[in-house]
């Protein structure tokens, strides 16, 4: 049991962070507003959880300008993908 729990990732325990990762896993990239609409989060809340995931190096972003407005695109890093899959596997094992 302990072994099983060890594989669970604290970074994904939060609902919003779990949501961000789920969405980014199946999309090459998503911008801030699409994520906001999708997850029904507030600006501040979403930004702070994105920051947490960036710190873990699970999520990366690139800034570009769309019609002179800054547009931030988020995507999942290879490390993030691996960590998320490991987390899913751990949940699966727990539920067995």
């Amino acid at each position: 049991m302990k072994q099983k729990l060890k594989d669970l990732n604290k970074a994904f325990e939060n609902k919003l962070r779990l949501g961000i990762m789920s969405a980014l896993m199946v999309n090459d990239h998503l911008d801030f507003n699409s994520l906001k609409d999708l997850l029904g989060a507030t600006d501040g809340n979403l930004a702070s959880h994105l920051k947490t995931l960036e710190k873990e190096a699970y999520v990366s972003y690139s800034k570009e300008f769309l019609e002179r407005k800054p547009n931030t695109k988020y995507s999942v890093t290879p490390a993030g993908r691996q960590a998320f899959l490991k987390h899913l596997k751990a949940i699966e094992n727990l539920l067995k």
Binding site: K15, L18, G19, S22, A23, M25, V26, N27, L38, L88
Partner: peptide, 9 residues
């Protein structure tokens, strides 16, 4: 939730 968000996104 994961499945739902993956589908919806």
């Amino acid at each position: 939730d994961i499945k739902e968000i993956m589908d919806r996104s």
